[in-house]
Design a protein around this nucleic acid. Sequence first.
DNA 1: GGTCATACTTACAAAAGTTATAGTACCCTA
DNA 2: TAGGGTACTATAACTTTTGTAAGTATGACC
Lengths: 120, 120
Amino acid sequence: MTRVKESSSQNENKKALAAECMEIYAANIIGGQWTLAICCHLINGKLRFGELKKRLPWITERMLALQLKKMEKNRLIKRTVFAEVPLRVEYELTESGKGLQPVLKLLEEWGIKHLKSGNN
Amino acid sequence: MTRVKESSSQNENKKALAAECMEIYAANIIGGQWTLAICCHLINGKLRFGELKKRLPWITERMLALQLKKMEKNRLIKRTVFAEVPLRVEYELTESGKGLQPVLKLLEEWGIKHLKSGNN
DNA sequence: GGTCATACTTACAAAAGTTATAGTACCCTA
DNA sequence: TAGGGTACTATAACTTTTGTAAGTATGACC
């Protein structure tokens, strides 16, 4: 009855779950520590690396760079480099990224309700 | 301009983000590796520990126990113990947990669209 | 008394994710 | 020649999450 594991890594489990369940696939993509925060800021338009950094005062440059790279790979954002001096790089949501807006809205509503329901 | 960090832990950052942004708060709650998978199975009704284990063949007992405990703490599920022998414990979604259904649906739809858009 | 089933718990280890700190490359300006 | 701004990268340390394997408590059943 119990299926035999073919691999023991965390990653394999994650992939297997995401493969058979689209909500888990989606949750994995938006689940990074800073991913949603970045989305929230980009939803009003494109921003430069330094502007994002200012808006996320607690993030380190490394994490910002890593998250942006991951989000680009996941096709949530588009990166545009302008060959100016000093260098300018702009980040903006892709169509897919913009498509998260209703998800974010629902999540927010659920979060508010959930938080309130805990104060009884 | 840059706010000063009051603590250096990962957790503090997480909390700070969740406090100022409800979608991040919500994402933190549903973001565990197995949380959504468990929700998916409980959405059709209550299940026992062992039944969940069978439905999630790759999960270890430890992870299942941990996740269920966390979900109970987060008020996503309710745990009921029946003083029988052998012991019977049932898990079911709370109202808050059931409230995730539309979120899951949207996430699923977004996931499908996103996956397709990557196959170009 | 020994075995079985259920629903866990514990100790330890590995992996993934995050943070801290410093440094790079580019070219402009003084 | 030195300093400054932007957008990163390198390295290592640290925290959190997940996995492995074994053990516990309860009471029925043989």
